[in-house]
């Protein structure tokens, strides 16, 4: 299981700070998240998914991942 953390608009859309997920790839995780949290549908495609601190593409494996961050577009300054 992978610990998935949500921030900002993603936190608001899921109503969760974090949860444990069992998907084995980032692509599967994205699909599973939209299925379980319909509020994410409009924003997840704009979010970066960081796996253990690195930006990865949807084919990346989550088999050994500990921490996934779902990051909406940054808006600092």
């Amino acid at each position: 299981m992978t610990r998935v953390r949500y921030f900002a608009a993603a936190l608001e859309a899921t109503g969760l700070d974090e949860e444990r997920r069992g998907e084995q790839t980032v692509g599967a995780l994205r699909a599973g998240l939209v299925a379980d949290h319909p509020g994410l549908a409009g924003i997840l495609s704009q979010c970066a998914v960081l796996v253990d601190g690195s930006r990865v593409d949807d084919a990346a494996s989550l088999a050994d991942a500990e921490l996934v961050d779902v990051l909406p577009p940054f808006a600092g300054g």
Binding site: F7, A8, A9, P72, F74, A75, G76
Partner: peptide, 9 residues
Amino acid sequence: IKLELPVWK
């Protein structure tokens, strides 16, 4: 900061 800082508003 505008591009890379992980801050949201």
